[in-house]
Nucleic acid binder design. Sequence first.
DNA 1: AGCACGCCGACT
DNA 2: GTCGGCGTGCTC
Length: 803
Amino acid sequence: MIAKIIVDVPSAQTDRMFDYKVPEQWQAFIRPGMRVIVPFGPRKVQGFIVELTEHSEFKQIKSINELQDTSPVLTAELMELGKWLAEKTLSYQISAFQVMLPAALKTKVKKEIRLKANKLELPFFVQALFTEKDRIPFEEVQSLAKKEKIEIQTLLLEGKLTEHFLLIEKAKQKKVRFVVLNKAIENIAEIKLKIPSRAKKQHEMLEFLVNHPKAIQSTELLKVLQTTRSTLQALIDKEYVVETEEEVYREAMAELMIQPTQPLMLTPKQTEVLSPIVEAMDCARSETFLLHGVTGSGKTEIYLQAIAKGLEEGKEAIMLVPEISLTPQMVERFKGRFGDLVAVLHSGLSAGEKLDEWRKIQRQEVKVVVGARSAVFAPFQNLGLIIIDEEHETSYKQEDNPRYHARDVAIYRGEHHRCPVILGSATPSLESYARAQKGIYTLLTLLERVNARALPSVEVVDMREELRNGNRSMFSSQLMEKMKERLEKKEQIVLFLNRRGHSTFVMCRDCGYVATCEHCDVSFTYHRHQHRLKCHYCGDEQAMPTTCHSCQSEHIRFFGSGTQKVEEELTKVLPEAKVIRMDVDTTSRKGSHGRLLEAFGRKEADILLGTQMIAKGLDFPSITLVGVLAADSMLHIPDFRSAERTFQLMEQVSGRAGRHELPGEVYIQTYTPEHYSIELVQSHDYERFFQMEMNNRKRAGYPPYYFMALVNISDPELTKVISVSEKIAQFLKRELHSTSIILGPVVSPLARLKDRYRYQCVIKYKNEPKLERTLREIQEHYMKETNQGSLQIQIDLNPFLFM
DNA sequence: AGCACGCCGACT
DNA sequence: GTCGGCGTGCTC
Ligand SMILES: [Zn+2]
Ligand SMILES: [Zn+2]
């Protein structure tokens, strides 16, 4: 019996099947979709069985070493999907398979050499290798001289040394670290003398550990002492304290007594929307619905009832939610209705926990999965419904290989399972809405909130006017007045600041010099806790400079997301207001995001001030005022979707106000009040926005009128990049249809990354049957150089990020 | 991606 | 001669 296998070697040359013999003992139950370990040249690798046959063209077939599964981890459907995914995204098959599975299922194989003979009989250099141990990692052999390597080879043949392969399971059990004082230490006072007195934190920590002799969790210790790992590390290095690792049993997310809920009565409007979905489910029709429902229109209840309908028929459902919206409250709504039948997949889980949830689906113990993008690959076998909530969110597109969009995968799976797909949004993406208008998707609308509560009133404030009236502060007089009013009434306020630069940078106030990474063309990000500069792209870091590199001035300082400055001004103008600030600074610690929100929910503050991150999920009854401080900051980003993003964001932020009994008001401050993406938020007029924006896209030749593809070429050698990208552009122009537009090559907006220069070509096309083939040809043509050389060619179909 | 093999310049 | 650096090619 022969197995055709895709091996875990992501390279163009190995992106095909390899044949292996199936040992007798496994022939009865081996199946396609199972994982195996196979010999591959001089090493061993993991692989997936894609086919079982009796014949092979190949002469010298090796045997499978290990069968890792008793039942396939990839169903026949998912294997087909994987093939399709690799084709559509121009990526390797192995990468497509891996992206569909939890990372914990991945196995890497390490080679080690063991000593099997009397050490003294062996050459000195071998004795040295095995000092105080009888096994060494193979890399140590690799770094030896050539002659010595050959000697090792002979010793292996003679059996004096043996090769062993270790299977490294990716992310096993979750581990927690504990620290205690080193037991060997008898005289603490003596030690304390050895630590320099300026190391205050280390003294504090020692003191604490002396007073608390019981082992304490490392993270706990750091939190209590308000310090960082470096303090602890220093003490560990000096061997004054000992750190141990312990496995903890993974407990399912603290099930805090979730109240079971019953289906709610639907409004006539909701019923009208639900019925075609149910009908499609009944007829097993793979129809895609675009549910355009304003915030508070009861979309979630429709999802819940549609899922319930499927469950009655013994069908399963996938519910996709953007990562940031995947809050405990969200999960609670699904667990409240479906109890134990729900699995949850989100990034907060450890690799092991994700595997646990995934196994529940595989073993058919659950019927519903709620999760972020990758949950679209849930291994259900009898899907009745796939829902993508907030379908306009860009996080549904994976930004590294394979660059897939969850929406495309959902529709593919919907067709396979003959089940409907619901795309839900208050502000649908232009692409989806256009498809709905063309009749490719079925449009369903819910333009009223349940209980007919009014949408919040939105006021656009012209900041130019404010400036003319002599108001140079960041709060307009209207917003100021409204804030005072709310403070008196003890109602809550949300202030939203979306700045263009997402992070804090360091600039000289005298000459304007900005600290930038020397490997990438980006400015450094200032990290407050460590008082250091870090590059977001390559991870390089350095100390915060005290003087300007360019003019030696001492007036060099960091410029934050701006929230800090707003906070300062708030305390000046509204000293009585309690403010909670949420930005990268205050939420970088794990869990702090949730804690701050909870505190605001308990009304421990009057004003919540934050960046993008507070646009979603805030649902507190006493928020009655929302202020957007600078609406146009996003508008001027050079991205053809910036107007769409602005409108979506403004709508989303508006939705935070007046979600309950108290009516809400929104004030949007802007320097371009006449721009339609801001003006139309006032009337919450999506339809009109859509028309305007479609006109612009048509005029400029952007999606949805054109499809786009991005080819990014990078290399440490600038001349190489330029010549290759020019050749590629020419090739594209020659091969593709005359109606397709090839832009570039131009230098990428992120011109240099990790010491590599980056150029790009953008392809705009309407109908291009040769596209995938042509792009494949480019990949193959440069295969040698991308494989062994330093050249990289990245291809992104329907890109969201043009970098 | 690894890993081995083999060619070639530099040095004992 | 021999050592080690690196370019080239293969993996069922
Ligand atoms: Zn960098
Ligand atoms: Zn300067």
